[in-house]
């Protein structure tokens, strides 16, 4: 008896075989943008996320400000974020050993870094690398505070994909969780974090 695999492949091979199709790649690889960070700021804000631009040295202060303003008391965090990000006055729960799901569901928020950010589309990409942790860490808490370094920002989607390693688990985030399912109009806030706050560090 033929296996399904053999049969499907045989059906495909029975079809008239075309020669390789040339792929025209004359679309733009990047875009000319005078102020890339400004564009990222504008586009992320467009999705109703909160964006701040901050000098690298001021990061801990701004993190402290933001958390105080939101009256946050417990924050999950990948164990390898820069120690100075874990500002006082907040209980930090490092994900080492891995936080149980039930506990993650009770924290006020999560602080992570990112791998790449795409200015044109207002997208932040996490690749589970340094300062980002497992995927569920940035998913279950209702508030996500994300630090983007200026050197992580690219202009276009092709530039971003070229920087990413496809074997890693990747999450592209463009604003807070949203839906267009009611009358095809976008509203923010469904299952993912309902608040996304981004600190662009320069």
């Amino acid at each position: 008896m033929f296996s399904a695999r053999d049969e499907i492949l045989a059906r495909i091979r029975a079809v008239n075989r075309a020669s390789p199709v040339p792929i025209p790649r004359d679309y733009e690889r990047t875009r000319t943008v005078p102020d890339v960070l400004g564009l990222l700021d504008e586009r992320v804000t467009d999705y109703k996320a909160i964006v701040h631009r901050v000098a690298e040295a001021q990061l801990p202060d701004r993190i402290a400000d933001r958390l105080a303003l939101r009256s946050v008391s417990t924050m999950a965090v990948p164990s390898d974020v820069p120690p100075e990000w874990r500002v006082p006055a907040v209980t930090w729960l490092p994900d080492e050993p891995p936080l149980p799901l039930a506990e993650l569901d009770t924290v006020d928020g999560v602080l992570t870094g990112c791998a790449v950010a795409i200015a044109e589309t207002g997208t932040i990409v996490l690749d589970a690398g340094a300062g980002q942790g497992r995927r569920m860490l940035s998913l279950v808490p209702d508030y996500h505070l994300c630090v983007v370094r200026a050197d992580q920002v690219v202009t276009s989607v092709p530039e971003a994909l070229a920087r990413l390693e496809p074997g890693r688990p990747l999450t592209f985030i463009s604003g807070p969780s949203a839906t267009s399912d009611i009358e095809l109009d976008r509203v923010e806030g469904v299952h993912g974090p309902r608040t996304l706050e981004v600190l662009i560090a320069t």
Partner: peptide, 29 residues
């Protein structure tokens, strides 16, 4: 496709979330 799809479907520059995974990643997912 990550440029064509979101603009064509939900009319967004990018949809809120895109997940990419390859097989199984120990300790994650």
């Amino acid at each position: 496709f990550l440029q064509l799809l979101p603009r064509s479907s939900t009319a967004e520059r990018m949809n809120p979330y895109t997940s990419v995974w390859s097989g199984v990643t120990p300790g994650d997912g």
